[in-house]
Amino acid sequence: MSSLDPQDEFFIGYLGVPPRLKRFLLGFIPILVLGALAFAFILPPLHFDQFNLGKRTKVPEFEGLLVGQPSPHLLVPRTGDVGTVSDFSLYLLSGTGKTSPKPEVLEHVDQWVNLKGTPFHRNHLTVIATKSAEPIEPPASGPTQPDEGSSLGEFSLSGEIVDGKCYPGVMKPGRTKTHRTCAIRCLSGGVPPVFVVHNQAGDQLYFLLSDLDGKAVNDKVLDLVADPVQITGEVIQYADAFVLKADPATYKLL
């Protein structure tokens, strides 16, 4: 004998869903499911800096002058008519992890090398995740050294310190708060820091950072990454890049 009154519906999990409740659920559950799924379509395009042009490039090796300071980089002679631009392109060097290039690579500093790795670039900033470097003969013709950097004067610039590996495309976004701890890991491991400044025209300007002795600042800026920072110092044009020379103790958190 059942005392179930058809007008007084009561759901018991193991017995099945009564008809009026079933009608309600057939309407409600699809709305709930579609409502949740809608976020999969709405959220991705709203995320910051994830569709930037940072990319991996498919060039497996480079020949150039390996330089150790302020941060490891490779100077690669430009081919063809370079006009007024520098004779050299500057590529930052990191290791394959959140590290500087391996000691076996860095022992060839100030030599010409054939360098193998994976390059990433965003706008005109390039980093090579370096796997190996073999010494080679310097080129027979053309310059073998870029000119001494020329000072462009003293500037006060506001921007963000990023790690020179994630920002060019390894991670998206490779900057700001969500990426902060990763950037700290990268810089303390020896990845070159880069100062990113947006000028009034909306272009990005990139600066290598150097202390007053021309050395790397990595360990002194760990607490300043991913936040707005003001740096006042001498800007030096060096190869096709800029170096910003200042005492890291004077960097100002904004």
Partner: peptide, 22 residues
Amino acid sequence: FYLFCFEGISLQFSSDLDIKGI
């Protein structure tokens, strides 16, 4: 469905994205 839509929509905007981040 949610997870794969999220990935698929993200990849619509650029094919050279950081998949782990997605």
